[in-house]
Write a protein that binds this DNA or RNA. Structure first.
Lengths: 226, 226
DNA sequence: GTATGTGAATAGATTCACAGCT
DNA sequence: AGCTGTGAATCTATTCACATAC
């Protein structure tokens, strides 16, 4: 079963682990910046807000081994996690919908820092097309396929109103984008080959609202276990 | 209908179910607007992008019963879900950090529509304090406790840089806010009595990046298991 | 002594499959 | 016949606990 070149992840990494990798990476980079060279699972766990055994199991999925009695080598872990998360390849993104949210996202530093520079903006509104936002000229949504081809974008961000989201997603898919992050508050569908994640801002507050309400109604102190 | 005061949720609703309730609610409101009066679990499932059995089980946690052979009554479900999600109580929110993201969030229609009007904005930067953003005068972060007391905010949104996030969270907690939505790309901690949710924009892209990379490396078509 | 690595135990969520009601 | 409601099965994820290595 020994595999040729490339990452030798025989077994797939669980989704829950993948979702934690960026969090670990942030903590590790911080440690590295502070000159720390090794880290125990306990410390990394507290930086990431998870259980130490969870950290160790996650690292084992990456085949990122530590040293018993010592811990993990920070720079080595950074390398392994970065590799798993795309091997340091920069993936330019295109944002569809340049409203309040689209503008904020186009200026969001974290995207660039994370290896996802914003390479293009498109909007359906002719009044917005041609404007310069965060260093990019907004182009028509009709130019989307061209833009994707020119810039090599593989990731699309949808920041349109809900009513326009499915059309935006379809256009992105037709343009060849293979990963989509949808901020529009609606369920959209994509073909199997495309990966979709949903970020739903209002929903997040409603979930908080549930717990708040329930806490109030129940009135129980609900003591922390452990 | 003929029930005593207050929701009678004996058993807690699973987290995964709570997270889906807002999605169901959106679909149901849409159906109601279209004049549809009953809906089957299959249809609601497709609107929400989940499995039909999942819908039925979720509804059973709410004690929201349907009619066998017919389906669920749309307006009744809307009532039950709204009740579970806070009973229609409007919870004003305060946003800490009026940068790109904070401004976009303060203008986000979905919050108001979802029952979470933005009642105040604060920032640590004196150059921003006093400005009017989305109908609110930005106040100093030092006024946070006063603002929370005046407006009765119970929910805080953190949209500061990562370095300022824990301080912002601590201030919110000290001001009496009991639910916090953190957009800053860092892990923060809160006391047990406070509910915290994290929305991490860059992380979302990195997770997409993992799948993209892995798909490319593996190259396997990975046929859907219908 | 200290911290990893991991099998086993536990917990949580999803999906199946079908009995039961309309 | 059609659709709900739910026990059982399955899948996924977390946590424990300890043998193993440094």
């Amino acid at each position: 079963m020994a595999d040729a070149a490339g990452p030798r992840q025989d077994e797939p990494i669980p989704d829950a682990t993948v979702a934690r990798l960026p969090i670990y990476l942030r903590g590790l980079v911080e440690l590295s910046d502070d000159g720390v060279s090794t880290v125990s699972s306990v410390v990394l766990a507290s930086l990431a807000g998870v259980n130490a055994a969870n950290v160790r199991k996650d690292m084992s999925y990456l085949h990122a081994h530590g040293t018993r009695g010592v811990g993990y080598e920070v720079d080595h872990l950074i390398g392994e996690i970065s590799l798993a998360l795309g091997g340091g390849v920069r993936s330019p993104v295109v944002i569809v919908g340049v409203g309040n949210l689209g503008r904020a996202l186009s200026r969001y530093d974290g995207f660039v820092a994370g290896g996802f520079p914003v390479a293009g903006l498109v909007d359906a509104d002719p009044a917005v097309v041609g404007r310069k936002v965060a260093g990019n000229i907004v182009r028509s949504v009709e130019d989307l396929a061209d833009l994707v081809a020119e810039t090599g974008c593989t990731v699309g961000i949808v920041a349109t109103p809900a009513a326009a989201a499915q059309v935006a997603v379809d256009s992105l898919v037709a343009s060849g984008v293979s990963s989509i992050l949808n901020f529009a508050p609606t369920v959209v569908t994509v073909p199997d080959r495309v990966d979709l994640r949903q970020v739903d801002l209002a929903t997040e507050l409603q979930i908080l609202g549930y717990h708040q309400h329930h806490r109030a109604v129940a009135g129980r102190s609900d003591r922390a276990t452990g």
